[in-house]
């Protein structure tokens, strides 16, 4: 803390300085707080309000919890949740798993690392709409170059005409975009693990695998959990890639696509707001669960 005053100062001066100083963080935070209050907090409260109303011809009619009742009675909502968890679960495992592998490889400090990292980051700058269309194009039935290569495996039909295939391509595109950032996060964590710890483990006779899982992994667990949280939230809220890649079909209708469909396409703003509220708590709940893992020891 810096706010300590020197004893020599007079009492009044100290009090003045203290009160001014204690307001400093407030002044520093004020601009951010104004932004967040007006353009985040107010809209959220407004959404809560909409979720209890029906909007028709510009008028709000209170309907109590009817929107939530409709939501919880809608089987599409549960199906959307199921698709979301499948989608997020698989892409999470792949992103984290491959991301870790890439980080370990980069941590061998090949002389070409700088080049590898630049090339690897290309997908990171590609927008979700563009990425979705490019991937759709790769798997297009007749003209898709990857579809043509895998034709012997899938038969004559495009992979995305099959429900699991459509979800798989969406997952691949998502992992493709999420991988560089995750790898970099892990690489940072790995580089901060002191070599002494690794070497002492090696001296104890542990092989490289054992050292990694018993020594390195526990040390970088905080970073691992951050990556898991970020990947999960990004996946749960992903809309652009899915819609551009497969359109709105049941096989890839995640709960966020369901929100897009109901709350935006169908113009059912009340139900949309209700879905938003539920989704917020899902996001929050998952984050809290993950954070529990971090605190366990």
């Amino acid at each position: 803390m810096i706010a300590a005053t020197t004893k020599k100062e007079s009492r009044t001066a100290a009090r003045f300085r203290l009160s001014w100083r204690s307001l400093v963080p407030f002044w520093l935070l004020l601009p951010s707080l104004i932004f967040l209050a007006v353009l985040q907090l107010y809209p959220v409260i407004y959404s809560l309000y909409i979720s209890l109303h029906r909007l028709r011809a510009g008028q709000y009619m209170p309907v109590g919890f009817r929107n939530f009742e409709r939501l919880f009675a809608d089987t599409n909502f549960y199906e959307g949740l199921a698709v979301s968890f499948r989608f997020v679960g698989i892409s999470l495992v792949l992103t984290i798993g491959i991301g870790m592998l890439v980080a370990v490889l980069l941590n061998q400090r090949s002389q070409f690392n700088a080049l590898y990292m630049v090339l690897m980051f290309v997908p990171w700058v590609v927008s979700d709409v563009v990425a979705g269309t490019i991937w759709r194009w790769l798997f297009q039935q007749d003209y898709g170059i990857i579809q043509n290569m895998i034709q012997p495996l899938t038969g004559s039909t495009s992979l995305y005409a099959k429900p699991d295939g459509a979800l798989l391509i969406v997952i691949l595109a998502t992992v493709w975009r999420g991988l560089p950032f995750t790898s970099l996060l892990f690489l940072g964590a790995l580089q901060n693990v002191s070599t002494e710890v690794i070497e002492s483990a090696a001296l104890d006779g542990a092989n490289r695998w054992k050292t990694f899982f018993r020594v390195t992994l526990p040390i970088i667990r905080p970073t691992l959990i951050v990556a898991v949280i970020l990947t999960t939230i990004a996946g749960l809220n992903s809309v652009g890639v899915i819609l551009t890649l497969t359109g709105n079909i049941p096989a890839t209708q995640t709960v966020s696509v369901y929100l897009y469909e109901q709350g935006w396409q169908f113009g059912d703003f009340g139900l949309g707001a209700a879905i938003s509220v539920v989704m917020f708590f899902i996001n929050l709940g998952l984050t809290l669960v993950y954070l529990r893992f971090q605190r366990q020891d």
Binding site: Q40, F269, N283
Partner: peptide, 10 residues
């Protein structure tokens, strides 16, 4: 954690 679409109407 707030879904993007939540705030758009407001």
């Amino acid at each position: 954690m707030i879904p993007t679409l939540t705030n758009l109407i407001a």
